[in-house]
Simulated scan of single mutants.
Amino acid sequence: MRAARVTRLDGPAAIEVGDVPEPTGEGLVVVDVVAAGVTFPDTLLTRGQYQIKPPPPFILGCEVAGVVRAAPAGSGLAEGDRVAAFPGFGGFAETVAAEPNVVFPLPGTVSFEAGAALPMNYLTVHFGLVRRGGLHPGETVLVHGAAGGIGTAAIQLAKAYGATVIAVVSTEEKAAVARAAGADDAVLADGFLPAVKERTGGRGVDIVVDPVGGDRFTDSLRSLAPRAACW
């Protein structure tokens, strides 16, 4: 099969496309890949800067969507099923093998391209907002990096749960992306704290989604209402 592999750790230019053996493994779901998501960890992996450091050569790609070629008994999956998967590695290839617990049925109403963006972004956000943040309808969520993958996923999921969303972005162009994703309001990162206080009548927000960190984190904490959450 054809695959995109990192052959040396000096950035995306080190990715080479070539022929490699198809993946095998007992108890794994084999998926013919239709679409693969490109994530920030992929770029870090090409430089050896991610917390997981596989030795080259290795195949990039931690999230995919495609069609099941083979599945183990008892997995709940069958040949021909449309799925999204989070294999961790190996997604930038024609075929990938993954543990059954990281392969999910993909409804026919969801395209393969959209499905390939679900595992990393939307499952991360669901865990943060719902499992850890305890998001409830009527709450207000502040989302940093709101035009990125995690940011747009956070906006859409928060709105689906009935929350009000204030997006934090670096440019007006990105503000338009955040609003298109469903944000109720957007503020620029420079001076976001007073803008958030103004828009919430001084109360602050119930949850902050901050995938940016750094100097923003202190003001993210200051933008919280009493008994609120930041992740």
Rank of each mutant, 00 (worst) to 15 (best):
Val6Ala: 04
Ala97Pro: 03
Val34Asn: 04
Gly90Ile: 02
Val110Ile: 10
Phe104Cys: 15
Gly18Arg: 11
Arg222Gly: 13
Arg47Trp: 02
Asp10Pro: 07
Gly213Ile: 12
Ala195Asp: 06
Gly214Ser: 11
Pro54Trp: 00
Leu60Met: 10
Val17His: 07
Glu94Val: 06
Ile59Tyr: 04
Ala154Lys: 07
Glu16Tyr: 02
Ser75Arg: 02
Gly133Tyr: 08
Val33Leu: 12
Asp184Tyr: 03
Arg82Asn: 10
Val83Phe: 05
Asp210Lys: 00
Ala175Arg: 04
Val205Ala: 14
Glu79Met: 12
Leu142Asp: 03
Pro54Arg: 01
Thr24Ile: 12
Asp10Cys: 13
Ala160Arg: 14
Arg199Asn: 07
Thr24Glu: 07
Val177Gln: 00
Thr95Met: 06
Arg82Asp: 05
Ala176Cys: 07
Ser220Thr: 10
Asp184Thr: 11
Thr218Glu: 13
Ile155Ser: 01
Ala116Glu: 01
Val29Gln: 07
Gln51Thr: 11
Ala163Asp: 05
Pro211Gly: 02
Val205His: 04
Pro119Trp: 03
Pro21Cys: 13
Phe192Arg: 08
Gly48Asn: 04
Phe217Asp: 14
Ala167Tyr: 00
Ala93Met: 07
Leu123Phe: 09
Gly115Arg: 05
Ala70His: 04
Val33Asn: 08
Asp215Asn: 14
Ala78Met: 12
Leu157Thr: 14
Asp190Cys: 09
Val34Ile: 04
Thr46His: 04
Cys230Val: 15
Thr7Glu: 14
Gly88Ile: 06
Val169Ile: 04
Ala181Lys: 01
Arg199Leu: 15
Gly108Thr: 09
Leu106His: 05
Ala158Thr: 10
Gly191Asp: 05
Tyr50Gly: 13
Glu63Val: 09
Val67Thr: 07
Thr218Phe: 11
Ala163Lys: 09
Val30Asp: 08
Val165Phe: 00
Ala154His: 06
Gly25Ser: 09
Ala178Gly: 10
Gly18His: 14
Phe92Met: 10
Leu193Ala: 09
Ala163Trp: 02
Val169Ser: 01
Val83Ile: 11
Thr152Leu: 04
Gly138Glu: 04
